[in-house]
């Protein structure tokens, strides 16, 4: 295979999927649905958790093979759904809600704090030291306790700038 400029391109080598640590979990998920494709979303959650917080082209190819869909189908899901990462994630993931209620109650300042504290250039990017991935998220459904953030999948509500700094300080 070659790219448009003639340079050789090799397709990613699929990882063995699912690895034994998550095989039972993945097989159980597949058994819930009448088609294998339907297991894509929950299996990608498991895969992302297992492989360091992101789905690499190699993992993508492995999942595609396992579920009998094309690599590009999996890529389409990774780029459509906000919770998946198709680039290396930081060791810690910070989500800042940016939708109306949180915005009314100070989400912009929280985002600035998260970016400054992590060293991330802008939302959606990983910090140069690889420690943090800061993401802008649309409504997280915690509006009665806005503003809300998630740190490593765990919700925090009524968050002040100081509290967010402390939460990020606590990340190793």
């Amino acid at each position: 295979m070659t790219s448009t400029n003639g340079a050789p391109v090799s397709p990613p080598e699929a990882v063995e999927f699912p690895p034994k640590e998550i095989k039972k979990e993945c097989d159980e998920i597949v058994a819930r649905y009448p088609t294998r494709m339907a297991a894509c979303l929950p299996v990608l959650h498991v895969a992302q958790r297992h492989f360091g917080g992101w789905v690499s082209p190699e993992v993508e190819a492995g999942v595609a093979e396992y579920l009998g869909v094309s690599d590009s189908h999996i890529r389409g899901l990774l780029t459509f759904y906000a919770m998946y990462n198709d680039k290396p994630a930081g060791r810690h993931e910070v989500w800042v809600c940016r939708t109306l209620t949180c915005w009314l109650l100070g989400a912009e300042k929280l985002r600035e704090t998260a970016l400054a504290k992590s060293g991330c250039e802008k939302p959606g990017m990983t910090s140069p030291d690889g420690k943090f991935l800061v993401k802008n998220m649309e409504c997280l459904g915690l509006c009665e306790a806005a503003p809300a953030v998630f740190v490593d999948g765990k919700p925090h509500v009524n968050v002040s700038n100081e509290q967010l700094e402390k939460l990020m300080d606590a990340c190793e």
Binding site: L77, A82, M137, E138
Partner: peptide, 12 residues
């Protein structure tokens, strides 16, 4: 009847 939770992944 069977019952399962299907998790979404962040899409309005």
């Amino acid at each position: 009847v069977e019952c399962y939770v299907h998790p979404g992944a962040g899409a309005y």
